[in-house]
Design a binder for these strands. Structure first.
Lengths: 351, 351
DNA sequence: CTGAAAGCGCTTACAG
DNA sequence: CTGAAAGCGCTTACAG
């Protein structure tokens, strides 16, 4: 119950050795007489001794804690990312503390203070709104940091993203090859490199094919905005016959408007392509053609980069782009000869 | 860059006071000469001093850290819960460390060790599979603990749940009042009190109305299982005309099978009611009648209970049930005279 | 109101 | 291989 935690001193006394010897047994820093070591371990187990990481931190200056800063977890993609990041980092001996950043300046300040006070050894910034200010404040702190799934112009910070430009281009080329000529893009947000790059890929593919976009509008990655925009597009004189949507979350809303409100058939009347391959994308209800974000590889790269920076604080920042395939499902018309991707669950994200 | 962190000693030197005085300024434990305090604050700001929480922890025995143990975050409900719990606890001066528990025994052991090593001041167990063993190990540790959204027979642990029995009963009564007689329940899991209580509510309502359930099968809260079960039910000789499904996540899959595979109309041919009021429940695509889990109130109760236990370790455990209303949408037939709930987003969970 | 002192539980040179 | 000693950065009685 409320009994005080067992310390290395307690174990030492019970095992008849000195306290530093107990410490050594749990550190493998220096060799310890095997027999004594065994005795210490036995006593420790019996007493329920677990080394106090707080004390260890104070001495070493390493807290073995990583801070992950998130904007929100409504989007299942980030939840899944958090879980996997957490597992990857736990595997390296780190625990993960979460911080939720709104987009107000005071909040950003408070979070940086918290990260510093908590003595985290490293920081992962995952898709936050006010990344720019937060990133620069974090950089000033000197704590190793990696941007996950969130580009940034600042060349002094490491980051891991999908190949958003390539993905945007490939999705658009697919629509063009299928014979679409009246293509619109419902884009992300000009402050988020993710969305910007997808849009650039879209525009590049259109230009190569000498096509003029029917529209190309920022929807802030918000479902409701994308839905309104869809209504507007189809109320106009020259509605599109294909939509490339900057993420799946918005694409689900777009499909809803097309089918339920406008009575259009997908893909007969309109083709739709999303981005992410979110868990729901392969639900029959949506059956969404989309560009997969290779989450697991992004996670691994992020953890690796961060560990590298923690080990060598002078390490130059690195940018890693991970390309993801186009997953062909039923929401977009197929180019001649093209077949749908192999069936099965969205392998990377869902089980 | 790699420069050592500023300590209270540095501030003391620069401000011409003793180190304990600096400490006092940041603790308000003892009064400090206002003029000196101001000088200390100024110097601290200038040097970028932030008190080292690790050192404070070591002394006080409080880490000001809460551990939240989760099973997975694919389900947006838990992501949202995590974010809100985190905010609530941050507001009380605690940071939140996350631990993901699989259901293997070694994992459970490892997590308890991590929680102890990290010196968390309190633990929230949120919907884990192996709750039983984890709970008992956590209890033995003596660290204050609250079960969130996860019942447990163990009467020695505090917990916060929705009124699952009431909710299950109310949903079922609604179906009966609408004239349904051939009602089936796709249940959760007999190891999870949440699901068990919803099922008990279902059975109670059926018995009161002297109705025999068409079926009442555990689906483990898994979408795929619920979908298979639905196919089986409707392949049988006497298919149901109404389904009460133990959570929304499964209900979405059930709707998909009914409409896309079986070509049935909802609610004309079959009524469906879910549980949770997940963010997607109010999407036109689903338009799901469901029992709302009052997330925000559950969060607040959880944080409050945990804070109470931390302040008074001898406090007897408390069980809090929070009732949630039935949100009437389009997926279930209406009883005569009944109207749909006011429109608008699922206010509690989504923005 | 304030400084010198002790201590939180570890780790790590330092002698032996 | 191992014990006595110092120290990580704080907080908190203890004198003054």
């Amino acid at each position: 119950m409320g009994s005080a935690r067992v310390t290395s001193r307690d174990v030492a006394k019970a095992a008849g050795v000195s306290q530093p010897t107990v410490s050594r047994v749990f550190n493998s820093s220096t060799a310890v007489d095997p027999e004594k070591a065994a005795r210490v371990r036995a006593v420790a187990r019996e007493l329920g001794y677990i080394p106090n990481l707080v004390a260890r931190s104070l001495h070493s200056g390493n807290s073995f804690r990583i801070g992950i800063v998130l904007a929100y977890l409504k989007n299942g993609f980030f939840g899944e990312a958090l879980q996997r990041l957490s597992k990857a980092l736990n595997g390296q001996g780190y625990s993960v503390t979460v911080y939720f950043a709104g987009n107000r300046t005071e909040e950003v300040d408070a979070i940086v203070d918290d990260l510093l006070a908590d003595q985290v050894d490293g920081i992962i910034l995952a898709s936050i709104s006010m990344a720019n200010e937060l990133v620069s404040r974090v950089r000033k702190s000197g704590i190793p940091c990696v941007l996950f799934n969130r580009g940034q112009c600042d060349p002094a910070t490491s980051m891991v993203t999908a190949s958003n430009f390539e993905g945007g281009r490939r999705a658009t080329e697919f629509l063009i090859k299928a014979g679409h000529r009246r293509i619109a893009h419902l884009a992300g947000w000009r402050e988020a490199l993710n969305g910007v790059d997808r849009k650039r890929g879209f525009l590049a593919a259109m230009e190569e094919a000498s096509l003029e976009p029917v529209a190309c509008t920022d929807c802030h990655f918000r479902r409701n905005v994308a839905m309104s925009e869809t209504r507007l597009l189809f109320a106009g004189a020259t509605p599109p016959d294909a939509l490339f949507v900057a993420n799946d979350h918005m694409a689900f809303g777009v499909l809803e408007v097309l089918r339920e409100e406008l009575g259009l058939r997908v893909p007969d009347d309109v083709s739709v392509i999303g981005y992410d391959d979110a868990p729901m994308a392969n639900w029959k209800t949506f059956d969404l053609t989309t560009v997969r974000q290779p989450l697991q590889r992004m996670i691994e790269a992020t953890a690796r980069l961060l560990m590298n920076e923690i080990q060598d604080n002078e390490r130059p920042p690195e940018k890693i782009e991970i390309s993801g395939e186009l997953i062909v499902r039923g929401s977009a018309r197929l180019p001649k000869g093209q077949r749908r991707s192999a069936q099965g669950p969205s392998a990377d994200i869902q089980d």
